[in-house]
Design a protein around this nucleic acid. Sequence first.
DNA 1: CGTTGGGTTGAGCGCGATCAAGCGTGGTGG
DNA 2: CCACCACGCTTGATCGCGCTCAACCCAACG
Lengths: 227, 227
Amino acid sequence: MNKTLTLNVRERDLLLNTPLLKRLSGAAAERMLDSVSVVSIESRDIIFGQGSQAKNFYTILSGFVRIYTLSRDGRETDIGVYGPGDAIAIDAMFGDGTYHFNAQAAEAVLLATFNIAEMKRLSSESPEVAVALMSVLSSNLGQAMDCVADDRMHTAPQRLANFLLQNCPPTGGSIRFRLPFQKSLLAGKLGLAPEALSRAFSSLRSAGVAVHGRVIEINDVEALRNV
Amino acid sequence: MNKTLTLNVRERDLLLNTPLLKRLSGAAAERMLDSVSVVSIESRDIIFGQGSQAKNFYTILSGFVRIYTLSRDGRETDIGVYGPGDAIAIDAMFGDGTYHFNAQAAEAVLLATFNIAEMKRLSSESPEVAVALMSVLSSNLGQAMDCVADDRMHTAPQRLANFLLQNCPPTGGSIRFRLPFQKSLLAGKLGLAPEALSRAFSSLRSAGVAVHGRVIEINDVEALRNV
DNA sequence: CGTTGGGTTGAGCGCGATCAAGCGTGGTGG
DNA sequence: CCACCACGCTTGATCGCGCTCAACCCAACG
C-alpha cells in the first residue's frame, strides 16, 4: 500500500474525466484536486473495513474493487464491484461516520482519496461540488436499486446475459470481447456462487455464447436480448 | 388524486420534521416550503410510472408507497417500501430525466411534491439545501445496499426476524406490536411471495413469535436476534 | 515435474416460487 | 338477519433454481 502524495499528469487526467469531476468548472475542479491524494493498493488488500472510522471516500482510477459484508458466521457476501471512474463509500460522508461495508482490491488498484471532512467543507461552500456529489450519489443509488430488481426478477443466466450485453462493444451482430475481471469476481457481482456462474455460462451456450477463458464470443447479440 | 395547493399547519409541521428538512435553517426551510405542494393519493393509485417524464420528487407525509418494476413478461417485482418521512425518486433529479421505477400508493397517502427543476436551482444556490439532499440520497443508498446484502445472505425467516427487530418498540424482553402495513406488502419488501412470508412467520413460531392478524407478539427479543 | 489457483462438472439438497385449495372476516344486498 | 361474496391470508403439493461439498481439469510457474 504505497501512498503517492502527489498527482502525476496521467493520474490527474484520469481523475478529471471521472463522473465526479468531469462537469466541474476549472476553479472547482482545482479545489477538489488540491485535497486529493492517490494511493495504490495491491491485489487482495483491504481498502477499508466495515465499522471502522470513515476518514476518506474514494474514486477508482484503475482496477476493480469488491464491496462485501460479513455475516455473523464469517461468510462473505458481495454487494457490488466497482471499476475505473466509480466512486466508493461516498455515502460515508453522511451517517454515523463509519464504513458500513468492507472494500477489497480485486487486483492492483489505483485510488483517488478524498478527505471526508474536507469534502464536507468544500461542498458546503461550493454548490457546484455539492451538485457533483449528489449526481454521483444518485447514480450509485440507481445502480443499487437496479441490482435489487435484477436479483429479484431474473435467474442466473438472465443476469449473466444482462451483464454481457451491458459490457460488450455496442456493435450489433457477432462479437468477441474480454471480460473486465475474473469470473469469480463476476460471480460475486451477480450474487452467485462461482459454480453457478459456470453453469449459467454453459446454459447460455445454446443462446450462442462461447467462452474461451476470459474471452467471450456472442454469435447474435439480439438473440441474447431475448433470454 | 386530489391536489391540495396549500400546506395546512399539520402538513407543514410533518414536513419540517422530515429528514430532508429538519436540519435546515429557518430561511432555507422557508424557501423549500415555498415550492412544495401537497397531494393526496388514493390507495392503489399510481404515483408515477417508469419511463415517464420526471417532473417531481416526493417525500411521504403519511401512508406507504410501494416501488416496483415490471419485467418484460408483465410481472411486478417490488424493490422497496417507503413510509412517512422517506423521500422517493430523489435520484430522478439527476440522470436522464425519467423515472426508472413505478410507484404505487399501498394505502391512502399524503405526499409533499418537490418540483425537480426548482430544486435543482435551489440546491445550486443554497449549499445548505444541497447538503440536505445529499444526506437523504446517501441514506437511501445505504438502505438499498443493505437490502442487497440482506437478500443475498439471509433466508426468508432471517430477513423477517431482521424486519421485526427493526420495527418493534425498543423495550427488550417480551413485546406486542402492530405491523405498519399489510403482510402482502411486507412480503414484497422482503423480496418474497406472500406464501413464503406466511411460512416464514410460522417457522418463527418456534423462536417465540406469535401472529394475531397484524399484531405480532415476541416472547424474547434477544432470542430472535440469534436466528 | 509437483504445486498452486482458477475454473468446470457432478450429485444432493434446501429454499422459495408457483399453482391450487381452503380459511376467516368484513361488507353487501336480498 | 342471514346468505353470499370478496379479499387477505394460510396451507399443501410440486418443482426448479442455485448453494454446497467434492472431485477433477488445466494452465502457469517454480
